[in-house]
Design a protein around this nucleic acid. Structure first.
Ligand SMILES: [Mn+2]
Ligand SMILES: [Mn+2]
Ligand SMILES: [Zn+2]
Ligand SMILES: [Zn+2]
Lengths: 148, 148
DNA sequence: CTAGTAAACGATAATTATTATCGTTCGTCA
DNA sequence: TGACGAACGATAATAATTATCGTTTACTAG
């Protein structure tokens, strides 16, 4: 199936070119659907929407392309959810560095962050318990390894 | 099986009393083991360690008690992992409010946070891509609902 | 406009993580 | 010490994600 030649298609092809992706129908619909989902959808939620336009699409395709989009910076991962629950004993106030490649979590002191969390009133009557700051990046080990 | 009467046991019983928990052998070992795990272990990792001291313990017990400890503030959840992967289209710089009760995620502008992330050199040669700040608390809806 | 080729897709099995169920045992308190 | 509700262990069930593999598609050279 060939992609149609509308304006949206042209800009989508540019986006793919910019990110080194082959332009497929499934990817275009996935991308267009995401543009209409302003929240923080899960793969299942995206799948449900995409399926309305491509009933034969596979959930696996949605997963594969979401990962690819995140990898190439088209999508952003909201929850750096680490695959499984992670806990620690309550101790002193600190935050974390999370490697976007290997997902390793390392402690970082608040003073080393240079951030000044000012507990102020937040929109919508949200009752603040605490801040959790993730510094996302590439850890030293992955910097050495990653030669792709 | 009765808990022994060592110093650790006495302080553990106090901890349980303080948090409204019945003091069981499994919970004490779980807690003591966590004290020797400085990182950010998963339930499986904790289970593996606890099993060395209580070979008959069930994984379900570890899960149940980790959840309970988090609920009562004995443990802290490191990844406010939202159960499933969540993504969004890359747009403007913003952060999130996460409800610790219903896990709802809401956008929040950086200017509304009163935080000043200063991209400075971080320990260990970590190469920063971005900050992700989660303001964790109770959303307005859950504040109304939660009458326990 | 074909044909070749690698990439992507769809179906589905497999794996991982987590939760629910339920009969048995334990901890608390009178 | 005995009653009773809470917690436990075994295990089935569910949810989320990934792997496998045969078929189809997109891209490109001719
Ligand atoms: Mn930590
Ligand atoms: Mn957002
Ligand atoms: Zn890494
Ligand atoms: Zn809530």
């Amino acid at each position: 199936m060939y992609l149609s030649s509308s304006v949206e298609t042209r800009s989508f092809r540019e986006l793919c070119a910019d990110h080194g992706l082959t332009a497929t129908h499934q990817r275009q619909v996935l991308y267009e659907v995401m543009q209409t989902m302003p929240g923080h959808p899960s793969p299942e939620e995206v799948y449900a929407r995409v399926k309305k336009r491509i009933p034969a699409i596979s959930l696996a395709t949605v997963y594969k392309n979401i990962h690819l989009f995140v990898e190439r910076g088209v999508l952003k991962e909201v929850s750096m959810h680490h695959g499984s629950l992670r806990v620690e004993l309550n101790s002193h106030l600190h935050h974390h560095m999370v490697c976007s490649h290997c997902k390793a979590i390392t402690d970082i002191e608040e003073k080393d962050l240079g951030v000044l969390p000012a507990l102020q009133r937040l929109p919508g009557g949200f009752q603040v318990e605490r801040y959790a700051i993730d510094v996302i990046g590439i850890c030293a080990a992955c910097q050495k390894t990653k030669r792709s």
